Each structure stands twice: as structure tokens, then as C-alpha cells.
Simulated scan of single mutants.
Amino acid sequence: MKRSAALLGALALAATAWTAGTAHAAPASPAGVRQTSVSAAQQSAAERFWTPERLRGAKDVTNAKDMTGLPAATGTAAARTTAAPATAGPRLAVPPVAGPSTTAGGEVTPMSSPTAWNGGGLISTTAGKVFFQNSSGGTFACSATVANADNKSVVLTAGHCIVNAGTGESYQNWVFIPGYNHGNRPFGTFSARVLYWWSGYVSTGGNANWDFAYAVVNTVNNRSLVDTVGAEGIAFNSPTGQHVHSFGYGGSDAEGNGEQLNHCEGTEYPDAGRGDSTMWGIDCVQSGGSSGGGFLSNFDTGAGTGYLVGNISVSSGNNEYHPYLGDEALTTYQAAGAA
């Protein structure tokens, strides 16, 4: 089956390195984990950079062709460097954390096409939009979700929303806005202080099996991200074939042009489009801008709580897929949580 990365191929663009700062330097990462630290001055600059005008002008991340004129990655074995499947070690689940501003949700109708999320609950505060800039000055938007971690400051997103898979250089002026809604920033703008990704994502030139990443963000008003909005749980080496829910800020007219949180759900199945794929997907697809949004298992639609088991990465036809969070994703998460 021919697959197109309609959401979401690697952001393959000519980039210059984002100078890593020395302030708040993160601990050295374990083997296989890559990181970029951001200086305090760069963090402050990122917060100032994202004016309302720039938020409105940011382009929803779709694929490499949109950014460089290169052909979009197909996802076929011939077009991608083959990578070993993700390893599967012991299962680990970190529970969600209710936020001080969380309100109970209401009834939610199951959907197999993206629909505005009106259910409230924790996901309405823990899901949010990511904004960043490339070295050519272009501004872009993705999605992300707060994941419970020791430092209360971690968000899960897609690798292609953090790093150029062609060069290994990370993006700049990177911020996360939880609860984003039609330009509103109800909890503030959280700038990244460290960005983390798995080395296999870059060494394979953007193989979507490794298209997960984490950002460790600053405090706002001296409060951590989790203390401000709560956190979803996150699970590693979890069972597959589960009923899952996905959330993102798709940029189509039907999805509110990237200004509202949207929702899909379905029972996941393995990706049959690539011989080397370890990804799982559902019969629903969100459009550009939803890249990095969370897939959650054991999701309680009333409370808006669940366990992150992946992030929106690639699409094919009416399906969207997430990388499996195995040992590599766990190692990267642990490095982010210790920063």
C-alpha cells in the first residue's frame, strides 16, 4: 500500500544549528538520546517572539514538500531507510495528574472523523499547540500533550515538530500553549528549555517508527506546567490493538483552521504500509497541525484522562498512525523527566 505522509513527514529543511545555551544545562543524555538545551535568554526571546500576529501566521505542519519543495516521503520501504523494530521491554505506566483548573466533561459521541472536542475534562487543559521557527524564518504549528513526569515539565509531541531529520538540527523559538483556543492562552506560554528526540529518527532520515519527541518547558509565574494544568498519564511497552482517542489542532476548515482542539477515536491496528513499520493507527485522520497530538488509551471521556501511548505522526487515506512507545521512547522520556 502506498502511503503518503499527509500530516507529517520530517521537516527536511536547510537549517543552521540553534545555539545551545549554558544556563540550566540539562544532564547528559543516555546512549541513543539526543538533546538541545536552550539558554535563558533564548527562552525569554521565544516567549516575546510569539505575538498574536505570529501565532495566526504560523503554518500548520504537513510534509516536507510544503517546506522545501522536495517530494513528500511515501512511507514505503523503498523510500525510507529500514530500521530495526522498536524493542519491547517491561510495561510501565505513569498515572495522570488532575490540574487545579480541571472541570468535569460531558457526554461525548464516538467519532470516526475529526470533531471539535467539547467534552471538557483534563484533556482540555493538557492538550495544546506548539509553535516554532526554522532557520529560514518560517513559523510553524504542531500539537502536543502534557505527560506526567518527575520534573512536572514534559510534553510529548512528534519528532518532526522538534528536529530536522535531514540535518539533526533542532528548531528554535519553540513554545507550548496548553489549552490553546482561538488565539487565547488561558495558562500562558511555556517556552522550551530542553528538546529531546531518539537518535534513530535522524539517523534513518526520518523513519516514522521513531517520530516521537519530548520538550521540557519553563515555568510560568513560577509554577510548573503540571501544577498549572495537570498531566495525562503515559504508558510504555503497552498492549496493542486497544481502543484509543487522539487529539490535535488540525488546520482544515472542518477542524476549525487550527484554532480548536479536535478528537478522533477508534480501535488501533498495525500499519501494513511499510515492511519495517512498528506503528499503529485508527480509521480517522486529522489534518496538518495535528502532528504531535496525543493518542491515549484507557481514556475516560468524562474526566478527560488517559494514558499516552503515542503521538500523531503520519496518515494514509482516512487513517492516522502513531509510533509505538517502546524502550527507546521510555529512555528518552526518562532523560526528559530528569532535566
Rank of each mutant, 00 (worst) to 15 (best):
M1E: 12
K2L: 13
A10W: 00
T22E: 15
H24D: 13
A28G: 07
P30R: 11
R34D: 00
T36C: 15
T36W: 10
A41W: 08
S44D: 12
W50R: 04
A58L: 04
K59R: 15
N63T: 04
A64K: 00
M67R: 02
A79F: 11
R80V: 02
A83R: 03
A88G: 12
G89W: 10
P90A: 14
A93R: 11
V97H: 08
E107G: 14
E107L: 12
V108P: 05
V108Q: 11
S113A: 14
P114V: 03
P114Y: 01
P114S: 06
W117L: 08
G120W: 09
S124R: 11
T126E: 05
T126W: 05
K129D: 08
Q133I: 03
S135W: 06
G137I: 03
D150N: 15
S153C: 12
T157W: 00
I162S: 11
N173E: 10
W174R: 00
G183N: 13
R185D: 07
P186H: 13
G188W: 01
T189V: 11
R193P: 01
L195V: 00
Y196T: 00
W197L: 04
Y201I: 01
A208K: 09
N218D: 11
V220K: 07
R223G: 12
L225P: 08
E232L: 10
E232W: 01
A235Y: 01
H245I: 04
G248Q: 03
G251R: 00
N257K: 12
G266V: 06
A272N: 14
G275P: 10
S277T: 06
D283P: 09
V285M: 12
S291V: 02
G292F: 07
L296F: 12
T305K: 14
G306Y: 08
Y307A: 05
L308V: 12
V314L: 10
P323A: 06
T331N: 14
Q334E: 08
Q334A: 05
Q334V: 03
A335S: 15
G337A: 14
A338R: 14
A339N: 14
